[in-house]
């Protein structure tokens, strides 16, 4: 049997509702961990008032641009979506890039859907309101966002490889230096795109905030204690080693992840430490990223269905329908209508 497991915020509520996750509140030291959690981490790790997991890493969604092509096109990083669209069209027209933008649009829980969630939230929209009613109808912000997004594919401004790109693979593809922009993605991808040994354009990929007030989304992955564990004391030690403090009282794993993989942490004390402000420097500007960090909201505010057991099959449908819209098989309107219809189907179970 497995003692400790990790989970994305999308699967975690599901695991909890299936009874696979052991609450941690009563365990020695749990209170201190809880007190140090960031707000975003709390929203994942605390469920029904109980501490259910310790943070593995946190991230926020940021934009990237490639300095060489931006210089060649003489562009400043965009401020609004209209400006962005104009830049993309001009770059294509002037043959600065065949496909000026690369999106993270590969199938996944937070890849293709994440891009849509992020841009919808940035424009002031959500997917469900507080009462649980969907916000995908005609004229809704999510729908308009999708229409705008589809246009970048229709006009062949977006790289077709986007539809296969997960976070890491898109960072690598962007590192090849063929596009001006990369759409919203996990901030730590800079670690890959700017790795001297891996990327031919290391150092030329810069981070950029989102349009308007710059609001974005973020999330936290967690480690949890499996309820099936035979030796709870041992499992708690392992869990703390992975997601908490080591014997010397340091957040060793979180510090290492920040330094080596540019990951953020779900602990306030780590986020304020030099592990971040110095550790991230080889790949990006920590000050700038932390500014974006302050404008991030936990993704469940945008898509509260994350807490529902049907969110998983529903995101399968989102992936399918939005892919079809992006590849021009159906319109953005039909796509949203299908996704609305799918809510009822998946709720039936």
């Amino acid at each position: 049997m497995i003692d400790v497991s990790q989970s994305s915020p999308f699967s975690f509520p599901n695991f909890i509702s299936q009874g696979l996750v052991e609450p941690l509140d009563e365990l020695p030291g749990a209170k201190e961990y809880l007190a140090d959690l960031t707000d975003s981490a709390k929203q994942v790790a605390v469920y029904d008032g109980k501490l259910m997991g310790l943070p593995y890493f946190s991230t926020v969604w940021v934009w990237n641009y490639f300095t060489d092509l931006m210089d060649k096109a003489k562009f400043e990083p965009f401020g609004t979506y209209d400006e962005l669209m104009e830049q993309l069209r001009k770059a294509k027209q002037d043959k600065v890039a065949e496909y000026p933008i690369f999106w993270v649009a590969g199938v996944g829980l937070e890849q293709l859907p994440g891009t849509w969630y992020q841009m919808t939230w940035n424009r002031g929209g959500v997917f469900f309101d507080k009462q649980g009613a969907h916000q995908l109808g005609t004229g809704s912000i999510a729908r308009e966002t999708l229409k705008w997004w589809v246009r970048t594919f229709k006009e062949e401004l977006a790289d077709p490889e986007s539809l296969k790109a997960q976070f890491t693979s898109s960072a690598k593809a962007f590192g090849a230096g063929k596009n001006l922009y990369r759409g919203p993605n996990h901030h730590y991808d800079l670690n890959i795109a700017n790795d001297q040994a891996q990327s031919p354009n290391a150092g030329k990929i810069k981070v950029h905030g989102s349009s308007g007030d710059g609001r974005t989304i973020g999330d936290t992955h967690v480690y949890f204690l499996c309820s099936a564990t035979r030796d709870k004391a041992w499992a708690w030690k392992l869990l703390q080693y992975l997601g908490g403090k080591t014997k010397d009282g340091q957040y060793t794993q979180a510090n290492n992840l920040a330094r080596d993989a540019m990951l953020g942490s779900g602990y306030n004390s780590v986020m304020k430490s030099t592990a971040i402000t110095e550790g991230w420097k080889p790949w990006g500007d920590p000050v700038k990223i932390l500014e974006i960090w302050d404008k991030a909201t936990y993704v469940a505010e945008v898509v509260p269905s994350i807490y529902k057991p049907w969110h998983f099959p529903w995101s399968d449908r989102i992936n399918i329908e939005v892919s079809k819209a992006l590849t021009g098989q159906i319109t953005a309107d039909a796509c949203c209508d299908n996704i609305i219809a799918a809510i009822k189907e998946v709720q039936k179970g």
Binding site: K178, A197, S199
Partner: peptide, 10 residues
């Protein structure tokens, strides 16, 4: 080859 080399010449 390395990914760097793969991406440097596509």
């Amino acid at each position: 080859q390395s990914e760097k080399s793969l991406h440097a010449d596509t």
